[in-house]
Design a protein around this nucleic acid. Sequence first.
DNA 1: TTTGAAAATTGATACGGTCCAATTTTTGGA
DNA 2: TCCAAAAATTGGACCGTATCAATTTTCAAA
Lengths: 242, 242
Amino acid sequence: MADLVYREVMHDLKERIFKNQFENKKLPDERSLSESYGVSRSSIKRALNVLAQQGIIFKKRGSGTFINPLYLKNQSLFHYEGTNLGVTDSFNLDGQHPSVKLLDYQVVPATPELQQDLFLNENDFVYQIKRLRLLDNRPIIIETGYIPIKVAPALTPEIVTGSIFNYLEDNAGKSVTKSFMSILAEPSNEEDQSLLGLNDREPVGIMEGIFFLDDGTPFEFSNMRVHYKYLKYNTFVSLDGE
Amino acid sequence: MADLVYREVMHDLKERIFKNQFENKKLPDERSLSESYGVSRSSIKRALNVLAQQGIIFKKRGSGTFINPLYLKNQSLFHYEGTNLGVTDSFNLDGQHPSVKLLDYQVVPATPELQQDLFLNENDFVYQIKRLRLLDNRPIIIETGYIPIKVAPALTPEIVTGSIFNYLEDNAGKSVTKSFMSILAEPSNEEDQSLLGLNDREPVGIMEGIFFLDDGTPFEFSNMRVHYKYLKYNTFVSLDGE
DNA sequence: TTTGAAAATTGATACGGTCCAATTTTTGGA
DNA sequence: TCCAAAAATTGGACCGTATCAATTTTCAAA
């Protein structure tokens, strides 16, 4: 699986960090790591950079590389959901039962906006899929998705009732690894209120954006109107790469 | 300022992307860029990687590097980028005039929750700072922040009316480069409505979380109640480095 | 004209080297 | 002993090269 050098180093370091195998919360210097792993310093650097970006370690020039004490002490804090792309994945938390009710399913021409967002031509068509997502029979999300036919030609209402991402990964060997999302809030409209059981003072959170396949192909434009009590987006931000 | 090679390349490319100077939303290949900028391909790669991570471009092996059409489209007033940590920074981008009204400023004992979030002991004290942020005199955010005294012993109401982050960077040589934030939505309460000029159907967006110094020290717990029209958190999520 | 193999294009990974900058450790003189 | 200068340590930036893999283009055979 992890046949990349820097990934193997990264995973091994992660495990050793977890097992508290480093004294003083300090990692060996990069040159030593390079020698002991038998890889170039560049690869060590790359592995360490990923760990630093995840907030697991931090580096101080001239001093060394250290384990972030908060990562070990309060791990739940750092299990950030900024890395959960699919909605299905994010739900499996408390052993509750997610379900999907298909509200609408049709093929429509791509609007100009969709053409731009999904890199389509004028005569391209998209699936328009509107789903209500529930958790233990409580409605949580109204999700409207647009998927180009040419990207997933064999979709059916049955597939769409499950996880589209999982279907793609299992059957087409394509995986979704990137997304560009915007998160905002709005007052609820009448449809929100009736489908999600909100009163007119209660808002919805909105997550909308594009999901990409790992080769960079835009795969889906999605708009999710989320019951405000169930939207909580956690994210770890680091300016190091800037 | 940007005396780093890859940064200069990055900023130049960003500008050219913004000015639409690339045909077909396609950038030149890396080897050409390397030659035309007179820098190594590694530096080009590094610049492109940062842009890709920011979601501005995406790369397809064997095909080329392309501009993300979504990036040019987003023209929100409050354009909260996943890479902008401080609120002050996020405001300055659009050429509008930010200002701050100090609502409350006192020193209080750290609550048990703050003790945990900020890694404090029982007898530690924190500044409690409540500020109203405005943009061109329109109220945008009610921000309540908690900062341990021992991290920033010399804070004054005057400093707090400006940017705390900038003060720290200029005077203490400490910089804030990381944060762990949660984003959610709530109905507005009476205070929100009066301070932000909302009616009782209009919600607030909430961003709350912890800012860290670059050495990993938790620096501030912040809760921001944002006028819903001005909260737009854009984030590019990538599972590649995992 | 069509098709499919070969070649060219283009980004990805990895190596190893040079020099620099921040920090810590050592050392030698007052 | 104490302190400041020097040396060592350690991460950061950048270069140039080699090789591989995915995609597109070219081109010759059918």
